[in-house]
Structure formats: C-alpha cells, structure tokens
Amino acid sequence: MSIINLGYLEYEELAAIQKLPTKERYEKGPVAVIECIQEIPCNPCEAACKFGAIEIGEPITNLPTLALDKCTGCGICVSKCSGLAIFVINKVYSETTATVAFPYEYFPVPVVGQDVEAVDRKGEVVCKGKIVKVMNPISFDHTPVVTVEIPKEFADEVRSIKRGEA
C-alpha cells in the first residue's frame, strides 16, 4: 500500500478503506472527506462535530465513519483532527470550479484572493488555484483552515498548496 511504502495515499486505496461521499452527496454541496485509514487510538473528530456526523465509538481505534446526511461541510473537524487528515470538498462551488478546505499550519498563511499552486497528496503541483476563505479563530487552536478554489476535475486530488517563502 503506497501510504506505508511511499508515504502518500493513492485515491483508490483511500476509496477502498473509507466510505467516501457518493456522487449524489457531492451534488448537494460541501462535505467532509476523512482520510484516516489506520487504527490508532484517537477520537477528537467525534467530539468536534456539533452535528454528530462523525462516529468512532468503542474501541477508539475504530476508523471514523461519516453520516453524509448530517454533515454540512462546515469545516470545524478539519481543524480538530490531530492528524490533519480531514478535508471539506465542495464539488458544486460553481459550474467549473470546486473548493477544497484543508488544514494549513505553515507561515505564511495565505490570504483571501491570493493566487496559489495547488498540490496533490504527493506534493506535486497539479493546477493553479485561488484562496477563497481562511478560517483561523481561537477555537481552532492555531490550525488555520484554508479553502482553495480549483478546476472541478482536480477535486479528488488537491489536498494542499505549495508553501510560500517563510
């Protein structure tokens, strides 16, 4: 499995382990994608979702499952996951673009309107993007959640942006 041998997850492997949102759910608006695929004792995401959409239960090594109908795509869980492994994808942001909300703990944190280069799980630039939202309230405990707008076809690949010069 490439995550163990190479450090990054191939989309097919993620889809095989986690129940990803259906095409119908994506058409309704933003939704969380939880890229957590190893059994580790860990459950802050469960408590983080105020809509009760994430479930882990006992034992806490269970992988989180997402109730698609309860998830509103608010993005709070993105900041609460200690592994920085949750993303919010909106495949219907516009006719041609989608957005990906991701955790970003590097300086400098991008600003709204900034043009960026979007990268995939391997860290390779796949397309250009524009920052449309940056959330960094105190409750996120220094894990800013950045939303980047990208061409729709890259929504399943883009998971971060190329870092700026510190």
Partner: peptide
C-alpha cells in the same frame, strides 16, 4: 526499511509538503 515507521497521517503531511522520502 521498506515501510514508513510512523503513522500514515504524519507521513501524508510530509508528502503534501513535497519532501522526498528515500525508502
């Protein structure tokens, strides 16, 4: 080793940042 020793999610952050990992 041929396998990453630590948690996959930690390795994922490193890869997203574009850092090469020489297995």
């Amino acid at each position: 080793a041929p396998k990453i020793g630590g948690y996959a999610v930690h390795a994922a952050k490193i890869k997203r940042a574009g850092v090469p990992i020489y297995m």
